[in-house]
Amino acid sequence: MPKKQKTSSVYTRCNEYKDIFRVDDNVLFCNHCNISIDWKRKSTVDNHCKSQKHVFNVRSQEESQNKTQQLTLSSTQAVSESKKQLIEDLIEAFATADIPLEKVNSLLLFFKKHVKNGGSIPQAPTLRQNYLPSVFDKHFQSLKLLFDSKPVAIIMDETTDDCARSVVNTLFCYHNETKLVSVDFLERVNNTTMGQVLTTILTHFNISFNLPCLFLSDSAAYMKKCHCEVLSPLMPQLIHVPCCAHIINLIGYVSCW
């Protein structure tokens, strides 16, 4: 007695190819190509699955799905930290090379084209407002570690900036390291305000008043008075050395008259 052939339906045929086809109104549709397929002959269905168009559509949809797949929290944090590190390193490089941050605006297209994550670099105002403070804090902490509780030599000088403001620059020297440690803007520059600036800086760097050994400044009368009346009572060991270059400059200035 001959074997009874197993009857197929559109649903049984669809179940033979998991996630590839779907049934809509008794019609077999390909999920990837979005076309109807004659389901009655298995060979016809197999040929469609092997066709170049079907294989291409499957591959394209898999790649698209991988690109849009949600990142894990750790991956997202890693990407964010990588972008932040790039921006902070860029600010440090510009500061080291004495390049104004405004120059970044002219380089954004170059960064986006040639630098990995370069498209995440913002314009100069955002760099200055959101990223520069943290870069400065890291730099200041490194200075504190370098000069903490050290018998530093001190260099102070006052000048004016482009806005005609009085600016006091303070440098510390220890062994072979000479670093600018503070830039202060003063409304009035005299022996008292200069002394207050220096004592505040020493406190911030955890430097006891009995440690500094040398005080270098110009020969201005208020700086000599600062040493004699403000600093010497607090730091009797502090030796004041007027700047030789400033003295020579004064001599040349007087000689011209």
Rank of each mutant, 00 (worst) to 15 (best):
Q141V: 14
K116V: 04
Y174V: 10
F94M: 10
N169L: 10
G118I: 06
K67V: 07
A78H: 14
K144C: 11
D148P: 03
T170G: 05
T72S: 15
S166I: 04
Q70P: 13
E88C: 13
I121H: 03
P133Y: 01
I91L: 12
K84A: 09
K150D: 01
I155L: 15
A164D: 14
Q85E: 05
F172C: 01
V104M: 03
V135H: 07
E88Q: 10
S149L: 00
E92I: 11
Q129H: 13
S82E: 12
A97G: 04
L146V: 07
S106A: 06
D89A: 08
S80K: 13
S142M: 15
A164I: 12
V135N: 04
K138W: 03
A124E: 07
I87P: 01
F172G: 01
V152E: 00
K150E: 08
D89T: 12
K150V: 05
T170W: 06
R165P: 05
V79H: 09
R128M: 09
D89F: 09
S82W: 00
I121G: 04
K84P: 02
S106T: 06
S106M: 00
H139S: 08
T126C: 12
T126V: 14
M156S: 04
R165F: 09
E102I: 06
P151M: 04
E177V: 15
S106Y: 09
M156F: 02
F140Q: 04
N105Y: 03
F136L: 09
